[in-house]
Design a protein around this nucleic acid. Structure first.
Length: 567
RNA sequence: UGGGGGAUCGUCUAGCGGUAGGACGCCGGCCUUUGGAGCCGGCUACCUAGGUUCGAUUCCUAGUCCCCCAGCCA
């Protein structure tokens, strides 16, 4: 599906800069952006914001293009598994990089040459301080740093040492290449930042060709420049690095000078977005893997049933600015509901079944009733749903002692069975030990059949149901927020894992769904009427259906009920 | 206490000297064979104090608060 993403509904400060640059003829009027993930983890919804921004801007500009670049300069954490997953996710989101996929690791040779150039100009030197010593020499936020003894090395010596670093003559940590800028700079990033470090580790793409690897601050601006990136968009924490970014491209005299622009990263309430924390969850087995539907990873959201359209609409709605923000999860949920309301077929499913026998309905009769697939989309057609004497309804739809404003079934009360008849509750059976209601006895009014003479009779509620004899068993997984606390409010001295929501996953294994779902394929998104939106999970097999709840429907009764029982 | 950023409804976000708009949320109502969807109405905001100006959320000054930076991570 190649849905070309729609233009954003609003502009933002970055788009204004881009438009102004274009109008001024800067960069020869070209617009080239890039999305530069490091393949050391899976993409999450925070990345989606960046993807929508970078690809979005490129798509809006005539001739604009957005590169996909793997920022793979650190062999210790990167893996081709992630490269694959990243490409898959960007495509799924609906964006196309055409042939513009790049790898920072492809630039290693050229980056090395740039480093040599810097050394020749006396702007970089090999330092032999240990990491520990280097930290001490760096000074603090309020005190200037001190020059390393290596800072005085001659160009020739630096050239020789750097060549030997490349030749793998030295063990890890013995030398680094540093930019020679200003050890007294109030901006710590300018106190002779490390450009290259020694790592005797095989890189997933370059193998053992290299034992020295360029640092982000060196590789990134040059990669941008070499690719002809015009606008290098990144998050706020790199603001301090901008002078260094500019220094690198200036001193390396690249033919093209990209402009770095920073924006605030996305945060969402009650979930985590940092790679470290996501990895933590996966490794500590708090979740089922990177595609656990509780995770805000693109893989997780997809498995949960989110559509890429909903995600894009969300990214458009949250805007782009420089102020730190935490977006409420409800906004995300709003956009999935909005999208799924239009496209998801309605079906009936009972999550917590309660047996109901219609006493005056013939024992062996089965009727096929017409049901609308999607009231929002007439072209979705209708289907038939079997009805019989014994059905299951939702436990929540009956109350022995109905509170005020409870419109559903109770002793002596009537409700409509969706697409079927109006029934009246005339009796019930209980478990003698627990006192739990185990079965409802009802009567039905044959005149009230959907489309029948008394079909228009008003009752206070319509409930969903599934014929007991025809129902298909299913497991349904309900999800709630991953965290009980907003991540920003967790005291740093506490293990944030302690704040995980113990009810983030609830598995219901005795669910009953209508027979039309018997061979539903994984990934199918449905609305279970009156309950929520669900997505068939890949764990489903012909004999065992599994559904994930994407999001609940808005539930007016739940709100009333909550207000009635103030705790 | 160095440097870099940021402060507008509960939450995001617009506003670019002319008197605060949108979305989510929330609260009412209508409608409804999903207490869904839809429709209608309402709610709440310019960090503070001075100044400039006929007029300041926008400009100036002084504060306050929040975030980021002392990886050979990105």
């Amino acid at each position: 599906m190649s849905t070309e993403p729609a233009f954003p509904s609003h502009s933002d400060f970055i788009r204004e800069i881009v438009a102004a640059d274009r109008a001024a003829g800067k960069h020869a009027g070209r617009v080239v952006t890039r999305f530069p993930p490091e393949p050391n983890g899976y993409l999450h919804i925070g990345h989606a914001k960046s993807i929508c921004l970078n690809f979005g801007i490129a798509n809006e500009q005539p001739g604009g293009i957005c590169h996909l670049r793997m920022d793979d300069t650190n062999p210790t954490t990167e893996d081709p598994e992630y490269v694959e997953a990243i490409q898959d996710d960007v495509r799924w989101l609906g964006f196309e990089w055409h042939d513009k996929i790049f790898f920072a690791s492809d630039y290693f040779e050229r980056l090395y040459e740039y480093a040599v150039t810097l050394i020749r100009k006396g702007l970089a030197y090999v330092d032999s301080l240990s990491a520990d010593e280097m930290r001490r020499y760096r000074g603090t936020l309020t005190e200037p740093g001190q020059a390393s003894p290596s800072r005085a090395r001659s160009v020739e010596e630096n050239l020789d040492l750097f060549r030997r670093m490349r030749a793998c003559e030295f063990p890890d940590g013995t030398h680094v290449l540093r930019a020679k800028i200003d050890m007294a700079s109030p901006n710590i990033n300018l106190r002779d930042p490390v450009l290259y470090r020694i790592r005797h580790v095989a890189h997933y793409r370059t193998g053992t060709t290299w034992c020295i690897y360029p640092a982000y601050d060196f590789a990134h601006p040059l990669s941008d420049a070499m690719e002809g990136i015009t606008h290098s968009i990144c998050t706020l924490e790199f603001e301090d690095h901008r002078p260094l970014y500019d220094w690198v491209v200036e001193k390396c005299e690249t033919p093209q000078r990209p402009q770095q622009i920073e924006f605030a990263r996305l945060n969402i309430s009650f979930t985590v977005m940092s790679k470290r924390k996501l990895l933590d969850l996966v490794e500590r087995k708090q979740v089922d893997g990177w595609d656990d539907p509780r995770l805000p990873t693109l893989k997780g959201l997809r498995r949960r049933g989110f559509t890429s359209e909903a995600l894009r609409a969300f990214c458009d709605a949250i805007g782009v600015a420089k102020r730190e923000a935490v977006v409420e999860m409800q906004l995300l949920e709003h956009f999935v509901r909005e999208d799924l309301n239009k496209r998801a077929s309605r079906v009936m499913a009972v999550l917590r079944p309660l047996r109901l026998v219609i006493e005056n309905y013939p024992e062996d009769e089965v009727e096929q009733l017409d049901a609308v697939n999607n009231p929002e989309d007439p072209s979705a057609g209708t289907r038939q749903v079997p009805f019989s004497r014994t059905i299951y309804i939702e436990q929540d739809d009956f109350k022995e002692d109905p509170p005020k404003q409870f419109f559903r079934l109770a002793m002596g009360r009537e409700v409509r069975l969706r697409y079927a008849y109006i029934i009246k509750c005339v009796g019930l059976e209980k478990d003698p030990i627990t006192g739990q209601v185990t079965e409802l006895r009802c009567t039905y009014d044959p005149e009230t059949k959907s489309g029948g003479p008394q079909a228009q009779r008003k009752v206070k509620a319509t409930i969903h149901w599934v014929s007991a004899a025809h129902a298909v068993d299913a497991e349904i997984r309900l999800y709630e927020s991953l965290l009980l606390t907003d991540p920003g409010k967790i005291p740093p001295d506490q293990d944030w894992i302690e704040h995980l929501n113990p009810h983030s996953l609830e598995r219901l294994s005795a669910c009953k769904v209508e027979p039309s779902l018997v061979s539903v394929s994984p990934g199918t998104r449905l609305q279970f009427e009156r309950v929520g939106y669900f997505c068939a999970d890949p764990d489903s097999s012909p004999g065992r259906l599994v559904f994930n709840r994407t999001v609940t429907l808005k539930d007016a009764w739940a709100k009333i009920e909550k207000a009635q029982v103030p705790r």
